[in-house]
Amino acid sequence: MNRSPHIITIARKEVKDASRNSLFLTLAFFLLALTGISILVASFAFQSQVAQYHAALSQLSPAQLQSIVLTQPAYYPLQMLRGTVEYLEIIGAVIALVLGYLSIAKEKGNNTSRLLLTRPVTRNELMGGKLLGASVMLGTLVLGIGLFTVVAISGIGHVGFTTSELIKLGLVLLYTFGYLLFFFCFSAALALFISDLPRALMLAFSLWLVFVLIIPQIGDTMDPDNQVPGGFFAHMHMTQNGQEAVIGQFKHYENLRNALEVSSVEKHYERLSFATLGIKTMYNDKSLGFIMNDKWPDLLVLLLFLGAGIALSYAGMSNKRIMAASP
């Protein structure tokens, strides 16, 4: 018996179901619209920075220009993607949760799981097929957003991408795919482990709320530099060395803040993506080797989360559980 056709048949069914699901399609188009909005907003915000720079320049006398250094805002297309990455973190995760939930709920709700298990299909094939189907759907979604991003930025900014920028964008799309697949597995596993399906969905959402929105938000608002608009240390005219010397005296507080942030998979994905795209300015225009030398722990944690998610979803796929909630 050739095993692979079973997986492919199940994957094909998953893709067919998802592409016919109005909720999934609505959320996917919503995310695409959000990508467009965030690129548009970033472009106008950049134009506004340039206008402010020119306005400041025109108000300074030649004598003042010699003593005051004004830095002209520089355009980097990948930096326009901050909002897009943030929407992928938040809404992308919701789409993956919905997809994971629907993938299991429809089998339990329609009683098709009982029928499916009468066929010579193993539980691993069933989960493998579901994962493959989800990978195709999430991969298409991520690729679609990537292509839309390239077209939108080239169209709005009239600036093409260099090969290096395209590779970096491709890498971020790959991280996004892994991040979304984790949420798919997580939600599918909850729907398998918890027999009450609406409860499983709400638990998935509650955990999304805690780990994607609340915990990173606490870490961010606890940052002393975020207590003053424009930054506390900039307000105090502190140099980088001075800032480090002062913060060094509050190591326990900083460690607690960092520990909160790194407990969320979202923060690892964000740090990795922001560094690769150069949104975090110290990594802007740097080689991938330089970025990875610093950011490999975030990549490792992202992969560990993904591995744990896949393992959990396979562990949940037992005959007893897949049939547990069948009415």
């Binding site: 965030s38 907003v41 106008f44 915000a45 506004s48 901050r82 909002g83 943030e86 929407y87 973190e89 938040i90 929105l213 990173p216 938000q217 961010d220 608002t221 975020n226 207590q227 003053v228 608009p229 964000e270």
Partner: peptide, 12 residues
């Protein structure tokens, strides 16, 4: 013109 995550910071 603020990014989505920045809007979750009360100071921003």
């Amino acid at each position: 013109g603020q990014n989505p995550v920045a809007l979750l910071n009360p100071v921003t």
